[in-house]
Protein backbone atom coordinates (compact mmCIF):
# COMPACT_ATOMS: atom_id res chain seq x y z
CA UNK A 1 0.00 0.00 0.00
CA UNK A 2 1.35 3.40 -0.94
CA UNK A 3 2.46 5.79 1.76
CA UNK A 4 -0.28 8.23 0.92
CA UNK A 5 -3.06 5.71 1.60
CA UNK A 6 -5.48 7.21 4.11
CA UNK A 7 -5.22 5.66 7.57
CA UNK A 8 -8.66 4.95 8.91
CA UNK A 9 -9.46 4.13 12.52
CA UNK A 10 -12.79 2.35 12.68
CA UNK A 11 -15.43 3.31 15.16
CA UNK A 12 -17.49 0.21 14.62
CA UNK A 13 -20.38 1.22 16.96
CA UNK A 14 -21.76 -1.02 19.68
CA UNK A 15 -24.78 -2.13 17.65
CA UNK A 16 -22.69 -3.30 14.69
CA UNK A 17 -20.18 -4.93 17.02
CA UNK A 18 -22.76 -6.92 18.95
CA UNK A 19 -25.69 -7.37 16.57
CA UNK A 20 -24.44 -6.87 13.01
CA UNK A 21 -20.74 -7.85 12.91
CA UNK A 22 -21.08 -8.83 9.24
CA UNK A 23 -21.73 -5.14 8.51
CA UNK A 24 -18.40 -4.35 10.18
CA UNK A 25 -16.61 -6.93 8.03
CA UNK A 26 -18.09 -5.43 4.89
CA UNK A 27 -17.04 -1.96 5.99
CA UNK A 28 -13.43 -3.12 6.49
CA UNK A 29 -13.25 -4.94 3.15
CA UNK A 30 -14.83 -2.09 1.18
CA UNK A 31 -12.51 0.48 2.74
CA UNK A 32 -9.48 -1.74 2.13
CA UNK A 33 -10.44 -2.33 -1.49
CA UNK A 34 -10.84 1.40 -1.90
CA UNK A 35 -7.24 1.76 -0.76
CA UNK A 36 -7.46 2.72 2.90
CA UNK A 37 -5.37 1.30 5.71
CA UNK A 38 -7.90 0.23 8.33
CA UNK A 39 -7.25 -0.15 12.04
CA UNK A 40 -9.54 -1.18 14.89
CA UNK A 41 -8.88 -0.46 18.54
CA UNK A 42 -10.67 -3.07 20.69
CA UNK A 43 -10.62 -0.64 23.62
CA UNK A 44 -13.61 1.15 22.05
CA UNK A 45 -17.19 0.58 23.19
CA UNK A 46 -20.10 2.99 22.62
CA UNK A 47 -20.31 6.65 21.61
CA UNK A 48 -22.41 7.54 24.66
CA UNK A 49 -25.53 8.52 22.84
CA UNK A 50 -27.99 6.37 24.84
CA UNK A 51 -27.14 8.47 27.92
CA UNK A 52 -27.00 11.79 26.06
CA UNK A 53 -30.29 11.15 24.28
CA UNK A 54 -31.98 10.41 27.61
CA UNK A 55 -30.72 13.49 29.42
CA UNK A 56 -27.85 11.88 31.38
CA UNK A 57 -25.17 14.33 30.36
CA UNK A 58 -22.62 13.44 33.03
CA UNK A 59 -22.69 9.78 32.04
CA UNK A 60 -22.46 10.68 28.35
CA UNK A 61 -19.58 13.00 29.14
CA UNK A 62 -17.60 10.22 30.87
CA UNK A 63 -17.93 7.95 27.85
CA UNK A 64 -17.16 10.79 25.44
CA UNK A 65 -13.92 11.80 27.18
CA UNK A 66 -12.67 8.26 26.79
CA UNK A 67 -13.43 8.34 23.06
CA UNK A 68 -11.70 11.70 22.62
CA UNK A 69 -8.56 10.07 24.00
CA UNK A 70 -8.91 6.85 22.01
CA UNK A 71 -9.10 8.65 18.69
CA UNK A 72 -6.86 11.59 19.45
CA UNK A 73 -4.09 10.53 17.06
CA UNK A 74 -6.19 9.06 14.25
CA UNK A 75 -5.92 10.60 10.77
CA UNK A 76 -9.48 9.64 9.96
CA UNK A 77 -12.19 7.97 12.00
CA UNK A 78 -14.99 6.26 10.10
CA UNK A 79 -18.25 4.90 11.54
CA UNK A 80 -20.95 2.94 9.72
CA UNK A 81 -23.65 5.06 11.38
CA UNK A 82 -25.05 8.55 10.87
CA UNK A 83 -26.23 8.72 14.43
CA UNK A 84 -22.94 7.78 16.14
CA UNK A 85 -21.14 10.12 13.75
CA UNK A 86 -23.52 12.87 14.85
CA UNK A 87 -22.72 12.10 18.48
CA UNK A 88 -19.02 12.66 17.82
CA UNK A 89 -19.36 15.59 15.45
CA UNK A 90 -22.31 17.55 16.77
CA UNK A 91 -22.98 16.50 20.35
CA UNK A 92 -19.44 16.10 21.71
CA UNK A 93 -18.62 19.77 21.04
CA UNK A 94 -21.90 20.64 22.71
CA UNK A 95 -21.15 18.48 25.75
CA UNK A 96 -17.84 20.27 26.24
CA UNK A 97 -18.91 23.79 25.33
CA UNK A 98 -17.80 25.08 28.71
CA UNK A 99 -14.54 23.10 28.94
CA UNK A 100 -12.06 24.69 26.52
CA UNK A 101 -9.45 21.94 26.60
CA UNK A 102 -11.90 19.12 25.89
CA UNK A 103 -13.80 21.29 23.45
CA UNK A 104 -10.63 21.77 21.46
CA UNK A 105 -10.13 18.01 21.33
CA UNK A 106 -13.72 17.50 20.27
CA UNK A 107 -13.42 20.13 17.56
CA UNK A 108 -10.23 18.54 16.26
CA UNK A 109 -11.89 15.13 16.16
CA UNK A 110 -14.96 16.55 14.46
CA UNK A 111 -13.00 17.48 11.35
CA UNK A 112 -11.54 13.98 11.02
CA UNK A 113 -14.67 11.99 11.73
CA UNK A 114 -16.65 10.63 8.77
CA UNK A 115 -19.70 8.55 8.25
CA UNK A 116 -18.99 5.49 6.04
CA UNK A 117 -20.77 6.57 2.82
CA UNK A 118 -19.52 10.12 3.18
CA UNK A 119 -15.94 8.92 3.54
CA UNK A 120 -16.13 6.69 0.47
CA UNK A 121 -17.57 9.41 -1.76
CA UNK A 122 -15.87 12.53 -0.40
CA UNK A 123 -12.46 11.32 0.70
CA UNK A 124 -11.83 8.11 -1.23
CA UNK A 125 -13.65 9.52 -4.29
CA UNK A 126 -15.29 6.14 -4.85
CA UNK A 127 -18.85 5.72 -6.04
CA UNK A 128 -18.81 2.38 -7.82
CA UNK A 129 -17.50 -0.37 -5.56
CA UNK A 130 -18.24 -3.11 -8.09
CA UNK A 131 -21.34 -4.56 -6.46
CA UNK A 132 -24.26 -6.02 -8.38
CA UNK A 133 -27.74 -6.62 -6.98
CA UNK A 134 -30.65 -6.97 -9.39
CA UNK A 135 -33.42 -6.01 -6.98
CA UNK A 136 -35.79 -3.17 -6.15
CA UNK A 137 -34.26 -1.26 -3.26
CA UNK A 138 -35.54 1.67 -1.23
CA UNK A 139 -33.19 3.88 0.76
CA UNK A 140 -34.24 5.22 4.16
CA UNK A 141 -32.65 8.52 5.17
CA UNK A 142 -31.87 8.17 8.86
CA UNK A 143 -32.59 11.49 10.60
CA UNK A 144 -29.22 12.29 12.13
CA UNK A 145 -27.43 11.46 8.90
CA UNK A 146 -29.83 13.58 6.87
CA UNK A 147 -30.52 16.55 9.11
CA UNK A 148 -27.58 16.80 11.49
CA UNK A 149 -24.87 15.89 8.97
CA UNK A 150 -26.63 16.86 5.73
CA UNK A 151 -25.63 13.58 4.05
CA UNK A 152 -28.22 12.87 1.42
CA UNK A 153 -26.55 12.38 -1.96
CA UNK A 154 -23.54 10.26 -0.97
CA UNK A 155 -25.37 7.04 -0.05
CA UNK A 156 -27.58 7.44 -3.12
CA UNK A 157 -24.56 7.77 -5.40
CA UNK A 158 -23.17 4.53 -4.01
CA UNK A 159 -26.50 2.74 -4.32
CA UNK A 160 -27.15 3.93 -7.85
CA UNK A 161 -23.76 2.60 -8.95
CA UNK A 162 -24.72 -0.94 -7.92
CA UNK A 163 -25.21 -2.96 -11.11
CA UNK A 164 -28.73 -4.11 -11.86
CA UNK A 165 -30.24 -2.36 -8.86
CA UNK A 166 -33.42 -0.35 -9.16
CA UNK A 167 -33.62 2.42 -6.56
CA UNK A 168 -37.25 3.24 -5.76
CA UNK A 169 -38.39 6.39 -3.96
CA UNK A 170 -40.17 6.16 -0.63
CA UNK A 171 -43.23 8.32 -0.10
CA UNK A 172 -42.41 10.78 2.72
CA UNK A 173 -38.80 9.61 2.56
CA UNK A 174 -37.66 12.23 5.06
CA UNK A 175 -40.04 11.15 7.80
CA UNK A 176 -38.46 9.44 10.81
CA UNK A 177 -38.84 5.65 11.12
CA UNK A 178 -39.62 5.96 14.82
CA UNK A 179 -36.46 4.52 16.36
CA UNK A 180 -35.16 7.64 18.11
CA UNK A 181 -32.79 5.89 20.55
CA UNK A 182 -34.43 5.45 23.95
CA UNK A 183 -37.60 6.95 22.45
CA UNK A 184 -38.16 3.43 21.08
CA UNK A 185 -38.68 2.06 24.58
CA UNK A 186 -40.08 5.20 26.23
CA UNK A 187 -42.85 5.55 23.65
CA UNK A 188 -42.97 2.04 22.18
CA UNK A 189 -46.42 2.33 20.70
CA UNK A 190 -45.69 5.60 18.90
CA UNK A 191 -42.34 4.26 17.78
CA UNK A 192 -43.94 1.14 16.31
CA UNK A 193 -46.73 3.14 14.65
CA UNK A 194 -44.06 5.18 12.88
CA UNK A 195 -42.29 1.99 11.73
CA UNK A 196 -45.61 0.77 10.33
CA UNK A 197 -45.91 3.91 8.18
CA UNK A 198 -42.34 3.60 6.93
CA UNK A 199 -42.78 -0.04 5.95
CA UNK A 200 -46.11 0.65 4.32
CA UNK A 201 -44.33 3.25 2.19
CA UNK A 202 -41.65 0.70 1.31
CA UNK A 203 -44.31 -1.87 0.35
CA UNK A 204 -46.18 0.73 -1.73
CA UNK A 205 -42.95 1.51 -3.57
CA UNK A 206 -42.61 -2.20 -4.36
CA UNK A 207 -39.25 -2.43 -2.60
CA UNK A 208 -37.79 -5.87 -1.88
CA UNK A 209 -35.06 -4.40 0.31
CA UNK A 210 -34.91 -1.40 2.59
CA UNK A 211 -31.40 0.01 2.94
CA UNK A 212 -30.15 2.43 5.60
CA UNK A 213 -26.85 3.49 7.11
CA UNK A 214 -27.85 3.13 10.75
CA UNK A 215 -28.10 -0.13 12.67
CA UNK A 216 -30.51 1.50 15.14
CA UNK A 217 -33.15 2.24 12.50
CA UNK A 218 -32.57 -1.17 10.90
CA UNK A 219 -32.91 -3.10 14.16
CA UNK A 220 -36.17 -1.28 14.89
CA UNK A 221 -37.59 -1.75 11.37
CA UNK A 222 -36.43 -5.36 11.08
CA UNK A 223 -37.91 -6.10 14.50
CA UNK A 224 -41.28 -4.86 13.31
CA UNK A 225 -40.99 -6.73 9.98
CA UNK A 226 -40.18 -9.95 11.79
CA UNK A 227 -43.09 -9.55 14.20
CA UNK A 228 -45.52 -8.82 11.36
CA UNK A 229 -43.93 -11.33 8.96
CA UNK A 230 -43.55 -8.75 6.20
CA UNK A 231 -41.91 -9.97 3.00
CA UNK A 232 -39.43 -7.06 2.79
CA UNK A 233 -35.84 -7.29 4.12
CA UNK A 234 -33.41 -4.80 5.63
CA UNK A 235 -29.80 -4.26 4.64
CA UNK A 236 -27.11 -1.95 5.89
CA UNK A 237 -25.54 0.03 3.05
CA UNK A 238 -22.18 -1.72 3.62
CA UNK A 239 -23.82 -5.12 3.18
CA UNK A 240 -25.48 -3.99 -0.04
CA UNK A 241 -22.15 -2.77 -1.40
CA UNK A 242 -20.70 -6.27 -1.05
CA UNK A 243 -23.49 -8.05 -2.92
CA UNK A 244 -22.57 -9.86 -6.11
CA UNK A 245 -25.73 -11.35 -7.54
Amino acid sequence: MANNSPKVALFITCLVDQFYPQVGESVVRILQRAGAIVTFDPAQTCCGQPAFNTGYRDEARDVAIRNLELFEDADYVVAPSGSCSTMFRVFYPELFENEPELLQKAERLRGRFYEFSEFLVKVMKVENVGASFPHRVAYHDSCHLLRELGIESEPRKLIKAVKGLELVDLQDNKVCCGFGGTFSVKFPEVSVAMARDKLRAAADAGAEYLVANDAGCLMHLAGYMHREKLPIQTLHLAELLEKHE
Binding site: N53, T54, G55, C143, H144, R147, E148, K174, V175, C176, G178, F179, G180, G181, F183, K186, F187, V190, S191, M194
Partner: peptide
Protein backbone atom coordinates in the same frame (compact mmCIF):
# COMPACT_ATOMS: atom_id res chain seq x y z
CA UNK B 1 -39.37 16.59 26.31
CA UNK B 2 -39.09 12.81 25.89
CA UNK B 3 -42.09 12.66 23.54
CA UNK B 4 -39.91 13.13 20.48
CA UNK B 5 -37.72 10.92 18.33
CA UNK B 6 -35.48 14.00 17.90
CA UNK B 7 -35.73 13.60 14.15
CA UNK B 8 -35.25 17.32 13.59
CA UNK B 9 -38.08 17.81 11.07
Amino acid sequence: PFASSLCGA
